[in-house]
Design a protein around this nucleic acid. Sequence first.
RNA 1: GGUGGCGUGUCCGAGUGGCCUAAGGAGCACGCCUCGAAAGCGUGUGAGGGUUUACGCCCUCCGCGGGUUCAAAUCCCGCCGCCACCGCCA
Length: 427
Amino acid sequence: MLDMELIRKDREAVATALAKRLDPAEVNRALDEIQRLDQERRALISEIDAERQRRKAEARAYAQAKRAGTTPEPAPEAERKQLAELESQLDEVQSRLRTAMSELPNLPADDVVAGGKEANRVVRTFGEPPAIEKVRDHVELSRALGLVDHERGVKLGGSGFWMYTGMGARLEWALVNWLIEQNIQAGYEFLLPPHLLLDSAGFAAGQFPKFYDDVYHLDKQSAPRGQFLLPTAETAILGAFQDEILETAKLPLKAFAYTPCYRREAAGSHSDERGTVRGHQFNKVEIFQFTLPEQAGAALEAMVAHVEGLVEQLGLHHQTSLLAAGDASAAMKKTLDVEVWMPSTGKYKEVSSISWGGDYQARRAAIRYREPGNKQTRFVHTLNGSALATSRLFPAILEHFQQPDGSVLVPEVLRDKLGADRLTPIR
RNA sequence: GGUGGCGUGUCCGAGUGGCCUAAGGAGCACGCCUCGAAAGCGUGUGAGGGUUUACGCCCUCCGCGGGUUCAAAUCCCGCCGCCACCGCCA
C-alpha cells in the first residue's frame, strides 16, 4: 500500500515512479480515481463527525433533563436514518478506495529501471562456469544416482510433484540443515510457522488479491476460515507481526523460517524447468528483516552478500542481477536475484530473490515502530530473500560436480552432514 | 467437537444503561526535593482518523462484527481467542 499523503502532496513523483511498471495512462486513471475517492471519504468523515458530535451533546442534554425531572423528547427519527445513510456511504467509499490503493504496486527505487526481463542488469559475477566434458543434466543424474523418484512423486501427488529418495532425501535435508545453521550464524532468529495461513496474511504481504488464484485454498468445509497453503515463508513471517508496534531498540529484527512452499504454478514444462526446478511443492529457507527506514539500504546489501556467500560456499558459479521494475514483484521497491549457473542449459537460474519492500508491506500489515524521542509511530521497512531454495540448488550441485565416472562430488560444507563425500550411481 | 468460566489502556484491576470525557494501583517519562540517589510529592503517559499555518479542536476504538436504545464497556445475537473439564486423536 502506498502512502495516501504522498499521493496528495506529490502526485507527480508517484506517477513518474509507477510509470516504470505500468502504462502511464493507466496510472493517471488510477490516481484520478483514488484522489476522487479520497476527497469523498474525507468529506463524509467530516460530515459524520459533526453529526455524531451533535448527537452526543443531545444525549447528554437528555440525561441532564431527565435527572432534573423533565421528560425531554427524543430526536426525530429522520436524523437517525441520515447518519446510518452517511455511514454506509463512507463504508462503500472506503472499501473502493482500499481496493484501488491495494491494486497499486510499490514505487520502484530510483536506481531501478523501467522495463521487463530484458532490462535486468548483471551487477556481479562469481567465478567461471565449470569445465565439464560431457554434461549430463540433473534429471538424468538424479535418476542414475537414485536421488529423486519422479514417477512415485507423481503417483502420490499428481504432476508437478516428486519424492526425494535415499541419498537424495539426505542431500536435500543436509542442505536445509546447513542453510538453517548458516542463517542462525548470520544472526537471524529461527521460526517454524504454520503452513496454513489466513487471508489477512496473504493480503499484508501484497500477494493477494493479485496471486489469489495461484495458491492452494482449503475448501470451506474443511477450513471455514478459508486458510491457504503458504506459497513462501515470507507471507508467514510478515503476517506474524501484523498490527504490532515493534520495539525500536530491537530493530533491525532479523528472522528466518524453513517451510515447504506450495504453489499452483502454470502447468506445462519448459525444457529448462524439468526435474525439481519448478514444482507445486519445494523446500525453501527464507530470511526476513524489519528495519528502520534508514537501516534498509545496508540491510539489503548485507542480505545479498550473505546469500552470495552461501552459494559461494557451495562452490557454485553464479551471478547477481538487479531486476528491472517490470520483472520484480509488485510489492517491492528493489529486487536482486542471485542466479546459479546450470551447465546443462548454459543458463543462469534464480536461486534467490532478495528484495527491499520499503514500507509498502508494513503499511498493509500495520507494522510500526515508535520514533525515539517522538510519540509518532512510523512504518518499518521490510526486506526478504530466499536463503535458499533447495529445489534449485540441488540440480545445480549435481550438474556442477558431476564426474566423468558418473559420480557426483558433494560440496565440502555438506560432507559431514551427509556422511559422504561422493554420490555414486545405484547401478 | 461439547459444556462452563473469562476477554477493559504498557501491565494489574474496578466498572451490570446516563457527569465512563474509564476509578485505583504498578510501570515508564519529566519536574520538585537531594551533594547524589532512594523514598516522598507533582505532572504526563495508547492506537487510528478528520480538521487547523500553528496552539488546538473533534470523531472512533473496552477481543471482533452486528443489534436494541435519545444514550452501550455495561443489555441481546453471532464469531474469535484464552482457561478448565469431557470427547476425539492417523
